[in-house]
């Protein structure tokens, strides 16, 4: 039998590459490729390790535009068995409540499952909300910042790390675990797996025809929060003095003099 594991991954713009135009202060988005949220790969790695240890299947789900297929192929290349891409215009504009609602309804369709795995946060929005909100929709127990998972006699035992504390918890199945970012080394893609993604139909696409969710509950309409306006960040007034010259020794001397003037104890 083994474990039925579901891992949620988000398709995000690669912020390692995204840069701000220093003249206009806006985001340079042109030509920025998207990637699977790097912190979600830690969750994928935990899923694959669990499968290796206890048997079972790993299904990935993602709510994203169709271009995310490339990302799902990537994680199938890591060893994930299959993926569900939730993709429909009507889901656009969702805040975290509407996103987690849509994900949870899709997860219900994949029932029964034992363990849901989420990343700690995404690099584009960084809210970390979706794991807890999905647990709330599904009414299942959950825990964040998980570094290690074992499955003993039907009980999920996890180790988790807070800033100054290591805790061990036990959860029944089904449960939702949010994997701590950087808690493991996600495995590389293996070509045969990746080829499988292309050859076999490992990726299913679900639109709202499959999910049948009410418009009031999804997308912008299902989102309680509204971004009203964006305004320029007020900056803290600073002195803005720049060293004028090329010689680094002179620059160092200038800077140390300034710091001493400011009362920094240097010598």
């Amino acid at each position: 039998m083994g474990l039925k594991i579901i891992v949620a991954v988000k398709w995000v713009p690669n912020t390692q590459i995204v840069n701000i135009d220093p003249r206009t202060g806006t985001l340079i988005r042109e030509g920025i490729p998207s990637i699977i949220n790097p912190h979600d790969l830690n969750a994928v790695e935990v899923a694959l390790q669990l499968k290796e240890k206890y048997g079972g299947t790993v299904t990935a789900i993602s709510m994203a535009p169709m271009s995310a297929k490339a990302g799902l192929e990537f994680i199938i290349g890591m060893g994930v068995d299959k993926a569900v891409l939730i993709s429909d215009r009507v889901f656009a504009g969702a805040d975290t409540l509407a996103t987690s609602y849509t994900l949870s309804r899709a997860i219900e369709r994949l029932k029964p499952y034992d363990i849901l795995l989420f990343g700690q946060e995404t690099i584009d929005s960084s809210t970390g909300h979706i794991g807890a909100q999905t647990a709330s929709w599904l009414k299942i127990p959950y825990i964040y910042y998980v570094t290690d998972v074992e499955y003993i006699d039907g009980v999920v035992r996890v180790k988790r790390r807070l800033e100054r504390r290591i805790e061990v918890y036990e959860l029944p199945t089904p449960c939702l675990l949010v994997v701590a970012m950087k808690s493991n080394e996600p495995r590389p893609v293996k070509l045969p797996y990746k080829l499988r993604a292309k050859m076999e139909n490992c990726i299913e696409v679900w639109t709202n025809n499959e999910l049948g969710l009410m418009r009031e509950c999804i997308g912008l309409r299902g989102s309680p929060t509204r971004v009203e306006k964006s305004i320029a960040t007020p900056s803290i007034p600073r002195k803005k003095q720049k060293f004028d010259g090329q010689d680094v020794r002179a620059a160092a001397k200038w800077l140390i003099d300034k710091l001493i003037e400011e009362g920094v104890k240097i010598a």
Binding site: R238, K240, Q241, K242, V248, A252, I266
Partner: peptide, 30 residues
């Protein structure tokens, strides 16, 4: 052009690999 200069009190435009050792040396010297 880095925006950090608009948000700093003192700025040095240079490669850090040169400035940091120079700063260390200057502090040691003093």
């Amino acid at each position: 052009e880095a925006p950090i200069f608009e948000n700093a009190d003192y700025g040095v435009v240079a490669d850090y690999r040169e400035v940091i050792p120079a700063l260390i040396e200057e502090i040691m010297m003093r």
